[in-house]
Design a protein around this nucleic acid. Structure first.
Lengths: 199, 199
DNA sequence: GTCTATATCCAGATAGAC
DNA sequence: GTCTATCTGGATATAGAC
């Protein structure tokens, strides 16, 4: 066996560089938009020639993919952060608020994660698995509130992301649309409750 | 005065070429995505060198702008097409259906019109005026149903475009999200009605 | 009105020296 | 691990001949 050393200083150094590159990539897309990310520009940011980046990422799409995974991991963490409220309704409100905050604070990130707008980019299976985890926790949170159908999940995501996408497209940096979040959620929850009673 | 001739054959020919170029541009973005539109590729489509297109459009953004105007005009026409239903509620349902159909049948067009994702492109004042007209007719249609606040318009657009954007991003070509359109609209309308009664 | 020629610049990616 | 050098191909746009 080769596992004598617990730490691999080489691997650690490499990972640190990768993280640095990704951080620079986020800066870049926040400033110029996701579509504007270029290997050259990214290299310039981290003080390298563009070609040297290929030591860390095999292609530009691989960089997008790492960013996709990183952002989904961040979102998953935020959604699970803190104590779970006992009341499932409160929990849904809180999750929605976290989601909206996450999306509106970085439009470029939103574009990368939720709009299919980068030509030729599709997340890898591993990265997409994280996105699926996020959706699963949403499904579970809805389930605890008694919303167990696929239809519930579909409408729920449409309501929340509808407010977000309108906010980003028509009043970036403002609150004209997302300010209706709690009202829309309450409307939907009572709508479902009423439906249940009618059965 | 120079207006002796009623028809200007030269101008007609020119307009026909412009229309032909725009039609080719739509084909191209439908196939490759809005971001992939290039003057070279467009020239190849219409059987010209790229440089010749500059006789008809001063820049690539001008082409985007003409497409933006054209698509909004098309949408405006469809929304006003046919007899206005006497019942304002029926009218709202019909408008929403037309809008959803318009958006889902051409994702590239949706991206150009409603997502702010083309780097550096902003519609001209004239083109944007048409988009504002579309929104105005929506405002009026809501008004006839008693929804007269800005908040109503904001929530209304968030609901409809939320279903559309989820549809396009997660089930393009399908109906998993937009199938809930009528239910969501009815939910919102009764929500507003209930609010009115409570006052 | 379309062409050739050209300017300028940028992209992603690979080979191989050090 | 980073560099130089290079390949290949793309982009938008302008000048001027025909």
């Amino acid at each position: 066996m080769s596992g004598v050393l617990v730490r691999d200083r080489r691997a650690e150094r490499r990972q640190a560089t990768i993280d640095e590159i990704l951080a620079a990539a986020w800066d870049l897309v926040r400033e110029e938009g996701v579509a504007a990310l270029s290997v050259r520009g990214l290299g310039a940011r981290v003080g390298m020639r563009a070609q040297s980046l290929y030591v860390y990422f095999p292609s530009k799409h691989a960089i997008y993919d790492a960013m996709f995974a990183q952002a989904n991991t961040e979102l998953l963490g935020r959604l699970q952060d803190g104590p779970e409220p006992g009341d499932p309704i409160t929990s849904l409100h809180r999750r929605a608020r976290v989601f909206v905050e996450f999306c509106t604070e970085d439009p470029a990130r939103y574009q990368l994660l939720f709009q299919r707008t980068i030509p030729g980019f599709e997340p890898s299976e591993e990265s997409y698995a994280i996105a699926r985890q996020v959706l699963d926790t949403t499904r579970q949170a809805l389930g605890r509130a008694g919303l167990t159908d696929d239809a519930h999940l579909e409408v729920w995501t449409a309501l929340t992301s509808g407010l977000v996408s309108q906010q980003l497209a028509n009043d970036p940096g403002g609150t004209r649309f997302v300010r209706h979040l709690d009202e829309v959620i309450d409307m939907y929850l009572s709508h479902i409750k009423r439906q249940g009673r009618r059965k």
